[in-house]
Design a protein around this nucleic acid. Structure first.
Ligand SMILES: [Mn+2]
Ligand SMILES: [Mn+2]
Ligand SMILES: [Mn+2]
Ligand SMILES: [Mn+2]
Lengths: 218, 218
DNA sequence: TAAAATATTTAGATAAGTCTAAAAAATATA
DNA sequence: TATATTTTTTAGACTTATCTAAATATTTTA
């Protein structure tokens, strides 16, 4: 049985690896988990002995398939709990992450499958992130950002890349939610800000915003 | 913020104290938590420094009001989670205790209140145990056991004293559930077994069974 | 390609929670 | 009430996860 700490390391290595593709560096993990590099080295050695990561000194870390399987399972739990909190307990989408960080460590083979059934097999969490199935299969975003949509095209919001409370509350204030239709009216070359139309209203959003919204052209 | 271990000690002291009334002994706590007396002494000292228990060497332990408040809150969380697991996730009443032992340690001021609302403010858990309210008020059982009911009286099952899986499964097999009406037909002096009528069926149950069922005369 | 900067690992320390074995106190027994 | 038994505490050690400071390896820069 893994400790919460070990699970958090596996999840961190998984999510860093998803973005970068390459081996995951000690410093990256330390930053992700808000700890020191020396602590990371210690834990990596332990995970390596348990065959959950491949590790060679100074060469970075990769999850083994066993390690990846565990990491994905934790992601699955995290996202299903987030769905429960938003859909059934009336939490807002910016309030659930920290709670899910706790709930994802509840140990039970049956619980998460029963929860999934209770939630009627959702495919995405409240932030638009895909929920892995029982077998660990996961359909990743196509990574089309609002910032890449051309003028006069309309798209639908599928998810957020940054799911910080600050960003989510900003979206709330602009009435941008998952499923919103957004038409790109014009793009400003100078600062990459764009003018968009949503619910028949026009306004301008910065590049920082548009590059953090996953969308699909329609 | 208390650790899970500290919370478990407080809960153990609380539940031992409920039964006995007196100061709680080091050995009792050790037995309840399946640990050694020396470990208990160490932890008691720590809890005493935090003003969560009153402790004098060799004199046993009592919860302070602050300690009791925390213990009751954990009981509240435990029982509300049990209701969720049985009512919404279709767990059987003998399957939920260990999961609730984990879930009761989730830290959140809002979560348990939202859960309570979602569950529509249940007053008792799946084993008939009363659920403390937000303020920590709790209505304890009147402690009337089936074994104390006289012949030819009918009563209603309110709860179980022993909530081990073995006992609960036995009750399942006899179709005894919370709310069941039981008529005491006859009592056997020799071994204190009794013959009861339930759902128009007669059968005999041992003293061990009848003294573990909370009932109310009707 | 050698020096400088950065990244990573090692060494040694600390805190929480646990254990065994031994000492001390309280309680039971004779 | 003296002795035996039981309970509780203390002493010292171990594990996990963390840290700081120092050493070592890798990468960048000139
Ligand atoms: Mn999250
Ligand atoms: Mn999410
Ligand atoms: Mn329980
Ligand atoms: Mn219960």
């Amino acid at each position: 049985m893994l400790s919460q700490t070990e699970e958090n390391y596996l999840k961190a290595i998984y999510s860093i690896g998803l973005h970068t593709g390459k081996s995951v560096s000690t410093n990256n993990i330390a930053e992700e988990l808000d700890t020191k590099a020396s602590s990371v080295t210690d834990m990596i050695k332990k995970l390596s002995e348990k065959k959950l990561v491949d590790y060679k000194k100074y060469q970075g870390t990769n999850l083994t398939s066993k390690g990846k399987q565990i990491a994905v399972k934790i992601v699955r739990k995290h996202r299903l709990w987030e769905v429960f909190l938003v859909n059934n307990l009336n939490y807002a989408w910016d309030e659930v992450h920290d709670l899910a960080e706790q709930l994802e460590h509840i140990k039970s083979d049956t619980l998460i499958n029963k929860l999934e059934e209770f939630l009627e097999f959702p495919t995405h969490d409240p932030h638009g992130d895909p929920i892995p199935d029982k077998e660990g299969n996961i359909e990743h975003h196509k990574n089309v950002m609002l910032s890449s949509i051309e003028e006069n095209n309309t798209c639908k919001v599928l998810g957020v890349k940054d799911s910080s409370s600050a960003f989510l509350k900003f979206l709330d204030s602009k009435k941008i939610t998952l499923g919103s239709s957004i038409k790109v009216i014009s793009k400003e070359e100078f600062d990459n800000s764009i003018t968009i139309e949503i619910n028949n209203e026009l306004f301008s959003i910065s590049h920082l915003i548009s590059k953090n919204l996953f969308v699909k052209k329609i």
